[in-house]
């Protein structure tokens, strides 16, 4: 499934909006999600899951090819924690 499929369904369900408008609205949804996460703010979608930005501390790693130790810098990563409802649905 891709964004094009999502736009198609949103267009059908919305009614009274052009496909171009439906595409714009779907775009707004994902842009809003991205902008929120860029601010390190958590996004909680009930029945689906939570998107959380986690702060990782710097740690030592190793280049597996040269075996040279290198520092992996501190960074922020995005994680998705599926909701219990979604997990249950997938295992029915």
């Amino acid at each position: 499934m891709t964004k094009a499929d999502i736009i198609e369904t949103v267009y059908d369900k919305l009614g009274g909006y052009s496909k171009r408008e439906a595409a714009e609205l779907v775009e707004i949804v994902f842009e809003t999600l991205k902008d929120t996460l860029a601010k390190s703010e958590k996004v909680k979608i009930s029945g689906f899951g939570n998107f959380v930005v986690r702060e990782k501390k710097a740690r030592m790693g190793r280049n597996p090819q040269t075996k040279k130790p290198i520092e992996i810098s501190a960074r922020k990563v995005l994680t998705f924690k599926p909701s219990q409802v979604l997990k249950t649905t997938l295992n029915k």
Partner: peptide, 9 residues
């Protein structure tokens, strides 16, 4: 409708 249909899908 927009938001819910996205996550439902």
């Amino acid at each position: 409708i927009v938001v819910n249909s996205i996550f439902d899908m």
